[in-house]
Nucleic acid binder design. Structure first.
Lengths: 244, 244
DNA sequence: GTCGAATTCAAACATATGTTTTATACTTCG
DNA sequence: CGAAGTATAAAACATATGTTTGAATTCGAC
């Protein structure tokens, strides 16, 4: 009904008057949207819900972000700049024995799931994205998933003496990741089969230690001779037990 | 506007005339609904979509199942009766060394994810339920999750010499489960960080073998003395390496 | 203070979707 | 055959939700 030139609707003038001082309602919308989207996922979240929670009008979302998807993607981008990644990256890059680094990474990731503040945003939103993808999924993977996985490959590859591109290295990395992610994605399932499990910081430490033990038991199998001083005995086999 | 007695709407007479010969459209609806719900999840699926795919009228769903949720729960129940569980249960109950059983369970579960026919229904629907729960989640967990997990606890508990209720046993079971589930729930994520991974039956066998190796490396750490003949060296420690 | 642009607001709009109604065909049994 | 209950179909209905509109309001610059 409208000419293709008049397509601009409620959209704001792309560049606001004061790009320096940030718009308070815009900020508030982003903040609130982040939480609610992370909780309920993209589809199940209504912009009315967000607007009310942000104390703004319903039209504010379309005015500031064009449409619902615009708000969502911007909220994702904003959250990707948050601090969590730094914690993991720091854990991955610190100068320490690889076993220590691996344990640190496991711990950092696990701990991010019991915090209710923003940093666990990535995993919660990722859980929804995996079940019901939106265009933001690609961003999430490229900006966060890939670099972390890559670094993890180098770490584990170094420990088992194989290149990062080797399938075995990747299999090991996925095994470690899987043990962590199950506590994030399958929480309701865990609550059902293991009702006594309380996710206190203390318990999470225990879980992290277990995952570390569990994983290193296999990974250290690859070392031709024992190198780490304090650990208990290690296998001498270069290759772990062959499947028959 | 209506009296509380006239509340019955399109609902069918609860007990159809011929409970023996099953209604063809009812069956078709259940069948189609199962597939679509598994693909898109409860919320993202519309009953019009289902009706059209089943060649039925939109009102058919409400007529035969009361409402959308009725169709969904019945579809879940129907699918729970399907064959998949038997495969896993058989794998878990066969008379064989526990290592063999564990490997078999891993393989059966992993293989269920590359089939496009019904049996992988449970996992696909579970993935959606975990992100966006419905009343069916409890059923899924109680009827499938819990018994399998319980049997797995006994299996692993036996291998590490601890009772099924021990936290360590549960941690190990979750570690094994997590390694499997990550290939099911985090498929898009894996596709992003490991694009070359093709889920062919062959590759799935390799993955299953890896998960078996990875897990048994730790589990067999618990055996005070080497019992299995063909395996490589094992630690003598009753407890695996202590975290510092 | 006044003008103009930017922002906010209440209301309307359009569409999607679960549900219900009403009428019509169909099946079974007497 | 004919009556009663059953199943299907088309349409209407109600509601939720993303989006747009146009007026009111705010805010900065002159």
């Amino acid at each position: 009904m409208m000419s293709t030139l008049t397509r601009r609707t409620t959209q704001p003038p792309k560049r606001r008057r004061r790009p320096s001082v940030s718009d308070p309602t815009r900020e508030k919308l982003l903040d609130v949207a982040g939480r609610i989207f992370a909780d309920r996922g993209y589809r199940a979240t209504t912009i009315r819900e967000i607007s009310i929670a942000a104390g703004a009008n319903v039209a504010a979302v379309n005015y500031h972000f064009g449409d619902k998807l615009g708000l969502y993607t911007e909220a994702v981008q904003t959250s990707l700049r948050a601090a969590e990644l730094d914690a993991i990256q720091n854990a991955l890059n610190q100068a320490a024995p690889p076993q220590t680094i691996l344990r640190a990474v496991i711990r950092v990731r696990l701990h991010s799931i019991c915090r209710t503040d923003r940093p666990d945003w990535y995993f919660r939103i990722l859980a929804h994205e995996l079940a019901e993808p939106t265009p933001a999924l690609r961003q999430l993977i490229n900006k966060v998933g890939r670099p972390i996985f890559q670094r993890m490959l180098e770490l584990i590859g170094g420990m088992i003496g194989l290149p990062a591109e080797d399938d075995k290295t990747k299999l090991c990395a996925v095994s470690v990741m899987g043990q962590i992610l199950v506590y994030i994605f399958a929480r309701p399932l865990l609550a059902g089969v293991w009702p006594d499990l309380k996710m206190t910081p203390d318990q999470i430490d225990r879980i992290a230690d277990h995952i570390g033990d569990f994983s290193l038991a296999y990974i250290e199998t690859f070392r031709p001779a024992a190198l780490s001083p304090g650990t208990s005995g290690t296998n001498r086999a270069t290759q772990p037990r062959q499947r028959k």
